[in-house]
Every structure is written in structure tokens, then in C-alpha cells.
Amino acid sequence: MKKATGRVFKYGDNVDTDVIIPARYLNSSDPADLATHCMEDIDKEFVKKVQKGDIIVATRNFGCGSSREHAPIAIKAAGVDCVIAETFARIFYRNSINIGLPIIECKDAANEIQDGDQVEVDFDSGIIKNLTQNKEYKGQAFPPFMQKIIACEGLVNYINQK
């Protein structure tokens, strides 16, 4: 898998799907539409600042709450290439894999990386490099079948190729 390299947007514990994409926008399922409201209720500046290849880092239980796949879709469509967290809520975790948004769990990285840091993630090895702080972490690498799903850009293509 291709490495992700980008600037970090840092958040705390329990970033829920209602702040990632508020339900008032769920009358649309168009990724481009959803991306324009991504993180709106927690960080109004996010959509103005985010650039292709950026990385979101948060601490515990990222993506808790609703099963809305619109949440990882919005993040991916906003240009984010990877989310790093200490832990993810389980439905968000599944959804991210299924739509091909790489996510990785790593406690130390999640806690030590700061907003604005430049970070590089190697998904094959699970190695996370903080280029700003010159630190390296070992995150949990994906099991092979999840790597295949992400490499196929999601579950649909994976099923089609089986």
C-alpha cells in the first residue's frame, strides 16, 4: 500500500459521527457535498484548511455514535489520507476499511503527535513517523485481508474481484 504523508489535524477523545458529519446534512449522500461539512460542529476551520493528503489524529474512541458511512466518506472526500487514533469506535472502523479509508491504531502516536505536525504512515509495516518531532511509532498493521480490501479501494471491488 502507498504511504500517507501530510499535515495533522489533531482532536481529542470521543470525536463522534454527529460532529464529523451532522445529521442535518444526511439528506445528501454525495461525497463532495458531505466533504463540505466535514468536522463542521467540532472545527469550523477544518474544511477551509484541509488539503489533499492531510492526516487526522485523535485519541480515544474516534468515530463513536451512529453507523453513518457518510462519516468516513466525508473525511475521505475532504482529502484526508489517513486517520490515526488510540482507538476507533467499531462501526467507524469497519466502515473506513469498507470504503478504503486507511486508519491505524497507535496509542503513543495518537497522544504525542500535535496539531500541524508533518506525519508519514507506512501501512504495510504499521510504522508512523512524526517528521516534525523526529519520532517514530509502531502502529497496528492491518491483517492481510483488510489490506486487500483497502488496496481494492473498498469492500465492493474486493467482492467483485473474488
Binding site: 453507523s67 453513518r68 458511512e69 468516513p72 462501526i91 469497519r94 466502515n95 469498507n98 470504503i99 473498498g154 469492500l155 465492493v156 467482492i159
Partner: peptide
């Protein structure tokens, strides 16, 4: 609970 892609599959 799952997401939409899991539902589709």
C-alpha cells in the same frame, strides 16, 4: 450495527 457497504454486501 454496520455501515452501508456492509449492508450492501
Amino acid at each position: 450495527g454496520v455501515g452501508s457497504t456492509d449492508m450492501a454486501a
